[in-house]
Structures are given as C-alpha cells and as structure tokens.
C-alpha cells in the first residue's frame, strides 16, 4: 500500500515537464520521513483551518466522510498497489507498506477511492448523497471488504474485463496507473485506523525511467530548477538514514 510524493520531473509519457504530485507545496514524503510515521490531517494539524487547506478542493467531502465514522479522525487513506509502483500522477516516489504491518480489524478496502466522482466532470461523489451532503452508507457498504475478502472485491471491480475473456494483467485490476496518462486515479483504496510507522519492510519505489529522467534534468537542466533540487537532495539524505538503519529499502522498478 502506498503514499506518494513528487518533484518536478519529465514525464516518460510525453517528455513534458511536470511539477508532479503534491510535493511542490507539501513535501509529503519529507514530512513522513521527518516524523517516521504517516500522519493524517487531524494528527498533523490541530487547527481546522489548516486541515481545510490540506484537504484543498475535497475539504467538504473529506470532512463529511471522516465525520461519519467513530474512528474517522484516525482514518488514513492509502491505495492498494499489489506490489506495483503507485500512481504517477501522485508523485515520483511510492512509499509502500507491506500488508503484514496492518491489523486486519483496523483495515478496510474500498472498491473505488472514497471520494471518487460519479463521473468525469461531475462534482457528485459516488459514495455520497445529493450535493455530497452525507455519506451514502448503503452504496459504500456494498463496495467494502475486509482483508480476507479483498481478492473478491478486486474481481468484482473488473468483472467486465474478466468476462471479455481477454488476457488479464491482474495488477491492473487493482490499479491502473498507465491507462489514461498521468491523471488516472482509479485504484482500490485502503482505509486504515492504526498508526503507520516507517519500520522494517517498508519500500520506497520509483519508476526507473522517471528517476533517470530526474537525473537528466539535474545533469543538463532544460527548465529552471533550484529549490527543487535542494529539496530532493535533502529528501534523499533522509531516505539514506532510514535505509542505513534498515527501516526501509529503496528500489527502482
């Protein structure tokens, strides 16, 4: 399961330069590594106004969703990546936690992500009542599974593909990072309400082509980069510390 972070890097899809992921503003991965844990907005910010900035355009929906559940303020949202890279739109690095780090009774899988829109261009969320006023529990319930039932959920998610009899890449049933350019965000979401610490077994992944594109940009810059390079160097230095302590392993895929 993964969280993401990003820096300015050339996309391997169209060779254009993107300020990818949220790290242009938030330094997501740096923050996680600085505290050694993945904290949600409530754990990071005591102040509601700061949380709203963090939730950005999803602030109303996220507040409603978290407010619906007893443990909602402990919720951490991840995506189930089945050993894969993650979603390029969210950044250049994936922090992947093994399932063994999670307690089965503090973990639930959602067929689509909890705030997914009903259709492209609409602001109506799939799991919400009209105008996103409250969570539509009947619909959401049908799309939830425990760890034990997770495989069935994935199969249900893509039964059309299975029915067509084509050769199926089972990883794509979980997460389709490359299907629709860098904006594709279709994934099986995992909601967790336990602490998530960086400890042995965590992997930090980057796509090989993308990391090499980053090296190209740094070696022979075509766009102006200054602070980004310093930020990423400091991030890599933090990563080194965890790697040396054997709390995480880095890999290019």
């Amino acid at each position: 399961m993964a969280v993401f972070t990003g820096f300015a890097v050339k996309s391997s899809l169209d060779a254009k330069m993107y300020y990818s992921g949220r790290d242009q503003h938030d330094l997501v991965l740096s923050k996680i590594l600085k505290v050694g844990a993945y904290l949600n907005a409530y754990e990071q910010f005591a102040d509601a106004a700061q949380r709203e900035v963090h939730f950005s355009k999803f602030k109303n929906e996220r507040t409603v969703f978290d407010g619906t559940f007893t443990e909602g303020q402990k919720f951490k949202y991840l995506n189930f990546n089945n050993g894969q890279l993650g979603i390029p739109a969210f950044g250049d690095f994936t922090l992947a936690f093994p399932l063994s780090h999670f307690q089965a009774d503090k973990l639930v899988f959602v067929k689509y992500n909890s705030l997914i829109r009903k259709e492209t261009g609409s602001t109506q969320c799939l799991y919400f009542t009209e105008n996103n006023e409250s969570v539509l529990l009947e619909t959401l319930e049908k799309d939830l599974s425990t760890l034990a039932e997770c495989r069935k959920l994935i199969v249900l998610k893509q039964k059309e593909d299975l029915g067509s009899g084509t050769d199926i890449d089972h990883n794509l049933l979980v997460l389709r990072p490359f299907a629709n350019g860098s904006k594709h965000r279709d994934y099986v979401e995992a909601i967790v309400w336990q602490p998530i610490n960086i400890k042995n077994g965590v992997r930090l992944r980057s796509e090989k082509e993308r990391f090499e594109a980053l090296i190209d940009e740094i070696t022979n810059p075509r766009v102006k980069l200054g602070a980004e390079v310093k930020n990423i160097t400091e991030l890599l230095t933090l990563i080194n510390r965890y790697e040396n302590d054997e709390l995480l392993a880095t890999e290019l895929i």
Partner: peptide
C-alpha cells in the same frame, strides 16, 4: 548542488 544530489542517492537507486 548537482554533486550533493549524486552523493545522496540511496543504495537501491544506484544501479
């Protein structure tokens, strides 16, 4: 800045 970046590349990204 460039050199500092290359000195800090983690083990798994070196290949």
């Amino acid at each position: 800045d460039k050199k500092a970046f290359f000195r800090s590349i983690p083990a798994g990204f070196l290949v």
